[in-house]
Amino acid sequence: MTMKTFNIAAAIVFAATVSSCNHNFDQIPVHETPRVEYAPNMYVSEAYEPVTLVEDSVNFPEAYNVMPYNNGSNLRLPVAGTIKRGAIPYHISKDSLAYANATLVAPIQPTEQVLAEGQVLFERFCSHCHGKGGEGDGPVNDKLQGVANLKSGTLKAVNAGHIFHVITYGKGRMLQHSSQLEPLERWKISLYVKEVLQKK
């Protein structure tokens, strides 16, 4: 074999093996434990980040954020007696549904934009039980049972304040949704149910 053919063969073989270097990460197999990391001390935040649990106190002493006496988790309830910034206290108690229905007035007008936002929120937070049309026929109702038909005569007769109160505290099999929805969002849903769904 001459030097020239040798060089050509070398080039071809080398190019063939290395050419597929444009790597596709899809080929990484499904794995249950994390793989190799480079400089992991740049991966974790020393400042507290929500839903980030750093359990390795040896390598990340500053970022270690496991709370004792809490199942090794760092999820905590808000401190008792505190409210978050901007929170509007709601003074009517759970059993005063009729009072809420009679007295509560929505702090926002049912403008086109409010109703559109109400529809988005309704479809994200309510429709899996109450159904897209509000008839209590969402897919979850088959399992949960007891989901109210929002278009029934009884519920057509109530005010938006009734719906606001029920979203806040729950009623029957429905539990409170105040941790998921801000008061204004609850009002948007209530107005959407009253002004759009029940008039369809």
Binding site: C21, F25, V30
Partner: peptide, 18 residues
């Protein structure tokens, strides 16, 4: 060479982590 190159690229990539 290829194995090292690919391995280096995959460091810190957790695609398909389940």
């Amino acid at each position: 060479v290829k194995t090292c190159w690919v391995g280096a690229q995959e460091v810190g990539v957790e695609q398909n982590y389940a």
